[in-house]
Design a protein around this nucleic acid. Structure first.
Length: 472
RNA sequence: GUCCCCAUCGUCUAGUGGCCUAGGACACUGGCCUUUCACGCCGGUAACCGGGGUUCGACUCCCCGUGGGGACGCCA
């Protein structure tokens, strides 16, 4: 309770703007966000755009949009790393002045050749120190390398994985500043995290091997070393790193496929983190219960089926007004008239228990919006026949006389009609189903009739009868 | 190749030395409900990688092996 300001937690999410927000990145951002919200800290967004060739504004935009969609709001930023080059250069100079870094003129080609040779000979392909003690000065194509300690051990006290130690001799004299004057990732990330006073660095565990080098740089610069938490990777069904081969990996793609952000967040958080046997979490619960200690240490396989299940859960349980908002755009995209909100809301409510995604809902509910029924050939061949035409005629004739035009009233009407006509409800229901929806699969036919309303029902039945009389 | 990490049902996981003849969830599956399809309800199949220790007692601790992942860029 004392020194609150000093203990305030500051985290960051630092994507590089070279593509869309990836599922894995989204989970990392989510863990950072939850950890920060739980502790009342500050969540910083920083765009790592020091790679001038690959960074694009479109990617930055896309990443911001995806985070917003997921509800991962940030408190500071976005900061752009490339805007800090002057500071990065000062820091590099400081290291050179102190003898902690040196200029190197080995060409990329040479380095590549040496790397290949080392690998072929079974050695670790680290920089061989050619320029380390040459005392070179800056030149047009020189780079700056870190003078890495050759003895000693560097240990990471990881919040998720526990202590991890590395022998410094295994580490490399990594490049700090490129020939183009821009800092490399491992240097820029240290300077920026330190300057932004990041207290907890939560990131993917593919960064574990970079961490000892970064710790050494923090120390060389005289900065305080933050706490680290490395979250395990997300794998595809073949246990290989998740990639496009395994299906959609972009967060926005899931939005387009009709997933709810709540579902994706809930799925992602349970991939690696757990809280007893609980599967469904509200955001409030997550903020309350989340902890890095409960994050597992092993990589997790991405399972689209479970995501689908969660999506269905959120579709079936969200409030009706919310559902209307969610579903409408997908029908708009199909070119349907959605001006009657009441009608759209009823259609969506009617379809929610049988839709795993909003796209599925929009597809299976198209009949609600199409005047012309799009008959499934097989279904029409089986039910839109002279044999069943009488059922349709009867319904069309009697429908205006149905006083209790509700689900129950219609069910009673159809049952008595079946009895009257000496058949089973099943045959009348299926025939009606094909006439009204074009398919043999649909929501309960009485519900469909209620939502469609008498006029539409009669029009569709007339059309079906015409079709039968025309001989299919 | 070297270094680092990991290892419970097909998948996500619970489990922190005895409560485990290992629990939940997804998927799969049998049944019920039923105007089709879903939903819902009831039930089922399915796992502690292998070998050594430590201990009265190991899924839980230690070691080795095996398997998987990651890193080894003037990418991040």
């Amino acid at each position: 309770m004392i020194k609150m300001t000093h203990e305030k937690i500051r985290t960051r999410f630092a994507p590089s703007p070279t593509g869309f927000l990836h599922i894995g990145g989204a989970r990392t951002a989510l863990f950072n966000w939850l950890y920060t919200r739980k502790s009342g800290g500050t969540f910083v967004l920083r765009i790592e755009d020091t790679d001038q060739l690959r960074s694009t504004d479109e990617s930055t935009r896309a990443i911001l949009d995806a985070m917003t969609w997921l509800g991962l709001n940030w408190d500071e930023g976005p900061y752009f790393q490339a805007e800090q080059v002057a500071i990065h250069r000062d820091m590099v100079q400081k290291l050179i002045d102190e003898g902690k870094a040196y200029y190197c003129t080995c060409s990329p080609e040479e380095l590549n050749a040496r790397r290949k040779k080392a690998l072929a000979e079974g050695r670790k392909p680290k920089y061989d120190g050619t320029c380390r003690d040459k005392g070179l000065r800056r030149s047009p194509d020189s780079v700056v390398r870190f003078r890495c300690p050759e003895v000693g051990v560097t240990v990471i006290h990881d919040l998720i994985k526990g202590d991890i130690s590395f022998k410094n001799e295994e580490l490399d004299d990594l490049i700090l500043e490129r020939a183009d004057g821009y800092p490399t990732y491992n240097f820029a990330v240290v300077v920026d995290d330190a300057r932004m006073e990041i207290t907890h660095v939560i990131r993917g565990d593919d960064h574990v091997n970079n961490t000892p080098k970064q710790i050494l740089i923090y120390e060389a610069l005289g900065y305080e070393v933050p706490l680290f938490g490395h979250v395990p990777m997300i794998l595809g069904s073949d246990k290989a790193r998740l990639s496009k081969r395994h299906g959609a990996t972009s967060v926005i793609a899931y939005q387009e496929m009709g997933y709810l952000p709540e579902a994706l967040v809930n799925y992602l958080v349970r991939l690696g983190w757990s809280h007893g046997d609980q599967e469904i979490f509200t955001i409030e619960e997550l903020i309350r219960e989340f902890s890095l200690e409960a994050v597992g240490k092993s990589a997790a396989v991405f399972n689209p089926e479970k995501l689908l299940w969660l999506n269905q859960h959120y579709i079936t349980t969200c409030p009706e007004e919310k559902l209307l908002e969610l579903a409408t755009p997908f029908w708009v995209k199909k070119g349907f008239d959605v001006s009657d909100r009441q009608y759209v809301a009823q259609a969506a409510a009617n379809l929610r228990t049988r839709s795993k995604t909003l796209v599925e809902m929009a597809d299976s509910g198209s009949f609600y919006f199409r005047e012309e029924v799009d008959y499934d050939p097989e279904a029409a061949a089986k039910f839109l026949t002279p044999e069943y035409a009488g059922h349709l005629e009867a319904v069309a004739e009697r429908i205006s006389g149905i006083a209790d035009y509700t689900k129950d009233g219609l069910e009673a009407f159809l049952r008595s009609l079946a009895e009257e006509r000496g058949t089973k409800l099943k045959w009348i229901a299926q025939t009606l189903r094909v006439a009204l929806t074009g398919r043999t699969v649909s929501p309960g036919i009485d519900e469909v009739m209620v939502i469609l309303g008498k006029e539409r029902v009669v029009r569709k039945i007339r059309r079906a009868i015409d079709r039968i009389q025309a001989g299919g």
